[in-house]
Design a protein around this nucleic acid. Structure first.
Lengths: 177, 177
DNA sequence: TGGCCAATAGATAGCGGTTAGCCGTGGGAG
DNA sequence: CTCCCACGGCTAACCGCTATCTATTGGCCA
């Protein structure tokens, strides 16, 4: 979050609400779940850390005062460092994996059924993402982002196939033994 | 985290350290980054929420006391509800996307270079995951999990190709215009 | 027997993120 | 004129995670 805000400020100074809007625009449909309040919390922390300075700017005379934030040299340095990083979020498939194991171990549900339900959900999301992609410029901006979402969902669906193969074999053994 | 602990307890009651070990075993190489302390925090919260009861059990007479936790009826109910959910973690490609946009907008780095660096990193992780998969039973347990990681990394690499196409086109336009 | 060390077991502080909700202003609908 | 809603900003409370600290015990070695 901090990095995202700094990235926006690297382009141009903004106040909180504007930053929120810019982030949402930049992320397209995926940015809709963003919390507005978090922007202010983040900005306050960045200011306390000296990465950003906020200046009161009374644009229109009678509107609530807004604080326009801009990068400090330390902030610019941090943006540069962030760009140089090559991090990537670790895939979090563990939850579903544990779910299957727990369902089987505690005899609370049929793992193969869980896989089927999950596949229905992912197919739903896949259609949703493909539909949302139609409203965006293909191969650009938020459309590019949605392309990534689609590729991931397809990969996850293939993983579900592998899960089904694995767990249906277990069922056979249990029933057969 | 809470759900993962409850899932373990659904199979059999355990004390904190044992739970940690079971989770790590269940997740294989991917569980190595888990923090041991988090187990106790989670157990305390679950107990306060009435989903779990801890009973002092002095197994060996002179060992430090350990608390063996077990599900309450409310806890079992929550496990059942968790199994019925069909949630799936949302793909978090936004960070890299913002990085490319910030790099281009603030003229701080070449987006195509960033994509190349990221691809090198993902290829490294792909080899790592494939190597780790060799040490696990294929198509089962932690091996299945690693299979999912591999599929995801391959999808992400394909997305990087799309990113490169998009941003190299932008570079052409900038240089040409 | 005494001393050290690793493993076991648990607790705590603090950071970052999320959510819910409050406050004040202004503009428009009724 | 009143009421309601959108805007802009903020606070409080919670959750998850990590790092770090303590304490006990068993094993090893001298």
């Amino acid at each position: 979050m901090q990095d995202a805000v700094l990235a926006m400020l690297a382009k141009e100074p903004s106040h909180g609400y504007h930053l929120h809007a810019r982030l949402r625009r930049s992320l397209g449909p995926l940015g809709e779940s963003m919390n507005r309040g978090q922007i202010y919390v983040t900005l306050a922390r960045l200011e306390r850390a000296g990465l950003v300075v906020g200046e009161r700017a009374d644009g229109l005379p009678e509107r609530p005062e807004r604080k326009v934030y801009a990068l400090t040299p330390a902030g610019q340095q941090r943006v540069a460092a962030w760009l140089a990083e090559v991090g990537w979020p670790k895939p979090d498939l563990a939850e579903f994996h544990l779910k299957l194991a727990a369902a089987a171990a505690a005899r609370l549900a049929d793992p193969v059924e869980l896989v089927a339900a999950q596949r229905r959900e992912l197919l739903r999301r896949l259609r949703e993402a493909q539909h949302a992609a139609l409203a965006e410029p293909a191969g650009w901006g938020a459309g590019l982002l949605l392309e990534g979402v689609v590729l991931r969902l397809q990969a996850d669906l293939r993983w579900l196939d592998a899960c089904e193969r694995a767990w249906s074999k277990v069922d056979d053994e249990v029933e057969g033994g």
